[in-house]
Design a protein around this nucleic acid. Structure first.
Length: 931
RNA sequence: GCCCGGGUGGUGAAAUUGGUAGACACGCAGGACUUAAAAUCCUGUGGGCAGUAAUGUCCGUGCGGGUUCAAGUCCCGCCCCGGGUACCA
């Protein structure tokens, strides 16, 4: 009898379903453990081999935790709102809800084939009204909250209104833009509209006008992290800046907490670093400069206040509000021309020409508050309105951009730091001693910064200030397929929907095209008196991990009990591509819900593992057009490139990808043979006039991202049909560390496949005769299995699943050599293996006559007693290099070891009669003799 | 430019705290079984030199230096690859 994986795997799945063993109960007395996968967007092309990498890892770990006695939550769901379904709907007229549902069905079928232990009763779909009801509810909480900087947390707007009624806003310190000061009486005299407008400046979900990334092709606004190189991340369409009224979430209020709490997380350093960079904290000072002849100040932000004596000019962003006032009549034309030029430039042009120096002089002069010298005020697009104050003091001696600007426009450069003692220091390095700087002269830069900050505050010129690069998040899409925003308008004032009226359902439509000028599809719906934009893709994914804890609750987003029990995600597995998007937003929502008392943890994801991407190998042949029959026949010949080809009438027509499934692999090279070519022709009719002279043509491999158009997508279904799910799971793990990106190849899958058959032959011989028996295990066999138990447990804990697979192979090889078919040993092996290859484990568990599912069996513990060697081998190194090995009995005295080693033939040969200089012992394992 | 990873045989890779580099697997070569094939099993497999051989010996973890009895691992300086990010003052 052979290892029949189809039958085994079907049986196992049936059993799991009948026993319903993946159902997770909330509130068990066992300790909880929450393992989460980043839920997929259900795209139309289904799963490819890259998807399951993380899913297999999380499945192994969650099964392992179950064996170890934890109550494990391991759910799966779908991030089902999104652009592709809507784009597809515009092209085909099919409703996104229908296509999304079909895709989800396909995904679930494919996931089901791999034996994952998801509790499907807890499935969530972000597009389901029962789910987005609560996404909308969280939005309403954000709308009804403001951020109190004094308590450093979100608080209710109602309370804020009470403060306004009592004492106005003078004592309120809120996150957001600077507010006009008003008194309690002022507040009471404001109209409803005025009051609401003021409150809007405090709310955590707020409407504001801002320059946004507008993508005309997609008809929508994109977040900064959805724009790459001035083009949309999805589809690569051009993006322009456009001023629009938009919903925002005030994530900047949480910048400091998002930064500080990173230290509490078990995430990779690179992932934390990416978030730190994205938040972009900088310490500096803001300072006011008086303007010569005008009654106004310009405020600048700088991280280098120490260089103030070298500030020889000032630069404003072209959009700065004071530009008009500062422009002198003589400079009006130049300034206007420059503003026109800046506005004409697309985002892409700006980004691709970062090095280009442009600018214009306003004609005005500011007074350097420390030198009292007038310095010219310029404007340039290298100063951004969105960061700091939109104005800088330029120190060309110590800033690369200021230096380039000064050189280009011939402005004075004043050295203020002597860097001569630091030869390698760059212009911007904070190294050296101050000079030409009055009272700072002679100080080290870092001391000078502290000193000048005190001076600035003492003289009332400005104050220390911390700035963040993080921007408030735009929270709206001019789109149909997303959560409706639960806001209605009266008198053009936005009001929140009553929570009782949630969910605000997405209206039925059959035309999903955006209107002219990017009008959202919902604006076309008659009687739609609500906000016409919908929420962005990341809304639903910012809290889904909480919903799994209590997915069917209709009275709350999660019950208190479920939240108290599950608390947070212990292990989160997903790709790095979400480093600054999803992972930052989800942390922000968690903190906000924490402030309101709805959740008990300040961070949602304790430990994070990033799986690498599995790339595809594209196979490329060079194809030549060689006319035949006096040019009447068009034949494309696939031949290896040869010298003089072109002169013989052959025209290279380019490189063609060949579908990986028809390609053969021999001697480390890829070939397409005549059979493969025929199959290709059948599937891709446009290649019918391809020919080859030889039996096979070598193809050139190229590693790139898996994509339909490159014909390099490998579908897990094919592998599973050929080898079975257990082999597929083991092989994906065997391929290398989970964190690493690597190209998919099936070159080594035979090794894993052989392992499965060897494992099978521990239980049955080729004739189907049962081999396992009840004999007690001997010492040698116990050593093998206990060594393996120890290694596997350690390797699982440190997520080294590739070495786990190797150790299973070693174990099975050794048991095969020992002809060990004893249940006493095989039982432990099967439980050990169950997280990795659950189907065969379940089958063997039953065959051996054990009760229940193998999933319920406790994970084996190793017994140290069986790992003690009876004798041990000493490697002896001489001058650091191992020269000999000497065997000793276990109970030898330590002093005898040295004597015997020194007396040994090898050591004597090296000593040549002299005394050793030194003898070093290491962990009782090595003796190094220094000669 | 800056930040974070990484570079080990023909290939995927191991080496957990500085302690026998290359485990395990693929591939390849040779052999056994077979009419043959598949399957299975056995042997060899980083490189050089010496030896009929067992074996000995030197070199070897991107490059150059250093610390140490001992370095893939730590330190300094480079090169290359991958990811992130960028007029952020």
């Amino acid at each position: 009898m052979e290892y029949n994986f189809t039958q085994i795997e079907n049986n196992a799945r049936k059993k799991w379903q009948n026993w319903n063993i993946y159902k997770t109960e909330t509130g068990s007395s066992k300790p909880k453990y929450y393992v989460l996968d980043m839920f997929p967007y259900p795209s139309g092309s289904g799963l490819h081999v890259g998807h399951p990498l993380g899913y297999i890892a999380s499945d192994i770990y969650s099964r392992y935790k179950k064996h170890c006695g934890f109550n494990v939550l391991h759910p799966m769901g779908f991030d089902a709102f999104g652009l592709p379904a809507e784009q597809y709907a515009i092209q085909t007229g099919r409703h996104p809800a229908d296509t999304t549902e079909e895709n989800i069905k396909r995904f679930k079928e494919q996931l089901g084939m791999m034996g994952f232990n998801y509790d499907w009763d807890r499935e969530v779909k972000t597009c389901a009204p029962e789910y987005y009801k609560w996404t909308q509810w969280i939005f309403l909480q954000l709308f009804k909250s403001w951020f109190n900087k004094k308590t450093n947390k979100a608080e209710s707007i109602e309370e804020l209104v009470k403060i306004f009624e009592k004492e106005g806003n003078a004592n309120v310190e809120a996150a957001g833009d600077k507010q006009e000061i008003f008194s309690a009486d002022d507040w009471k005299n404001f109209s409803e509209k005025e009051q609401q407008q003021i409150l809007m400046n405090y709310r955590l979900a707020f409407l504001s006008y801002a320059e946004v990334n507008w993508c005309p092709e997609l008809g929508t606004v994109l977040a900064n992290d959805e724009v790459k190189d001035g083009r949309s991340e999805r589809g690569g369409h051009p993006v322009i800046k456009k001023k629009m009224r938009q919903w925002f979430l005030r994530i900047t209020a949480y910048a400091e907490r998002l930064l500080n709490d990173l230290d509490t997380l078990e995430w990779s350093d690179s992932m934390k670093e990416m978030q730190r960079n994205w938040i972009g904290r900088s310490e500096g000072a803001s300072m006011k400069f008086k303007v010569q002849g005008l009654e106004l100040d310009v405020e600048v932000y700088t991280t280098r206040p120490d260089t103030i004596f070298g500030a020889t000019f000032m630069v404003l962003a072209p959009e700065h509000e004071l530009v008009e006032q500062l422009t002198t009549p003589e400079q009006k034309t130049a300034v206007q021309e420059y503003i026109n030029y800046v506005q004409s430039r697309s985002e892409r042009e700006r980004q691709s020409e970062v090095k280009k120096v442009t600018g214009a002089f306003t004609g005005s002069f500011a007074i350097n508050p420390f030198t009292n010298e007038p310095i010219p005020i310029w404007m340039s697009e290298y100063v951004l309105m969105g960061y700091g104050t939109g104005a800088i003091m330029a120190v060309p001696a110590d800033d690369d951009r200021d230096h380039a600007f000064a050189t280009h426009f011939n402005l004075p450069i004043m050295e203020v730091i002597d860097k001569s003692m630091y030869p390698g220091a760059g212009r911007e390095d904070k190294l050296g001693k101050m000079l030409n700087s009055d009272f700072l002269n002679g100080m080290e830069v870092l001391d000078a910064i502290a000193h000048i900050n005190n001076e600035i505050e003492k003289r009332g010129l400005g104050k220390r200030k911390v700035n963040y690069r993080l921007r408030d998040a735009i929270f709206g899409r001019q789109r149909y397929w997303g959560e409706p925003i639960p806001i209605y308008y009266k008198d053009d004032i936005p009001y929140p929907l009553d929570e009782k009226d949630l969910p605000l359902l997405l209206p039925q439509m059959d035309d999903f095209k955006p209107g002219a000028d990017g009008e959202p599809p919902l604006a076309k719906v008659r009687d739609w008196k609500y906000e016409p934009t919908t929420m962005p893709g990341w809304a639903g994914s910012s809290w889904y991990f909480l919903r799994y804890m209590d997915p069917r609750n209709d009275n709350a987003f999660i019950s208190k009990e479920a939240e108290q029990y599950w608390q947070d995600v212990d292990l989160y597995i997903g790709g790095t591509e979400h480093a600054v998007g999803h992972l930052l937003y989800a942390r922000f929502w968690q903190k906000f819900l924490y402030d309101l008392g709805h959740v008990s943890k300040i961070e949602p994801f304790k430990r994070l593992i990033n799986q690498g991407m599995i790339q595809g190998v594209s196979l490329i042949a060079t194809v030549y057009l060689i006319p035949e029959n006096d040019g009447r026949d068009i034949k494309y010949w696939m031949i290896p490139p040869q010298p003089n080809m072109e002169t013989n009438g052959a025209t290279s027509v380019g490189e063609f990808h060949f579908p990986v499934k028809f390609v053969k692999w021999e001697n480390g090279k890829y070939y397409i043979d005549k059979e493969g070519l025929e199959l290709t022709k059948k599937e891709f009719s446009e290649r019918t006039n391809f020919y080859m002279k030889e039996e096979k043509v070598e193809l050139v491999p190229l590693v790139e991202k898996m994509s339909k158009s490159k014909l390099n997508v490998v579908n897990p279904d094919d592998i599973i049909n050929e080898y079975g799910a257990d082999t597929f799971r083991m092989y994906e793990m065997f391929l290398g560390p989970i964190e690493q990106s690597k190209p998919w190849n099936t070159n080594g899958i035979d090794g894993v496949s052989k392992f499965m058959r060897k494992l099978w032959r521990l239980f049955y011989d080729d004739n189907g005769k049962q081999l396992f028996n009840d004999e007690p295990a001997n010492e040698q066999e116990l050593k093998v299995i206990h060594k393996t138990i120890k290694k596997i447990r350690e390797d699982i804990e440190r997520f080294s699943f590739n070495t786990c697979v190797s150790n299973f192979m070693i174990c099975v090889n050794e048991l095969t050599d020992l002809k060990c078919h004893k249940k006493a040993v095989l039982k432990d092996l099967i439980v050990l293996l169950a997280p990795f290859a659950p189907h065969i484990a379940e089958e063997m568990w039953e065959q051996m006559g054990f009760e229940n599912s193998v999933t319920l069996a406790p994970y084996p513990q190793h017994n140290p007693q069986f790992l003690v060697e009876s004798k041990f081998e000493y490697p002896i190194s001489i001058n650091g290099k191992v020269r000999a090995k000497i065997e000793f009995a276990l109970d030898i005295e330590a002093s005898k070891v040295e004597q015997e080693v020194l007396a040994s033939e090898t050591v004597q040969k090296w000593l040549e009669g002299k005394q050793p200089k030194k003898v070093v012992y290491v962990k009782g394992r090595i003796i190094n003799v220094v000669v």
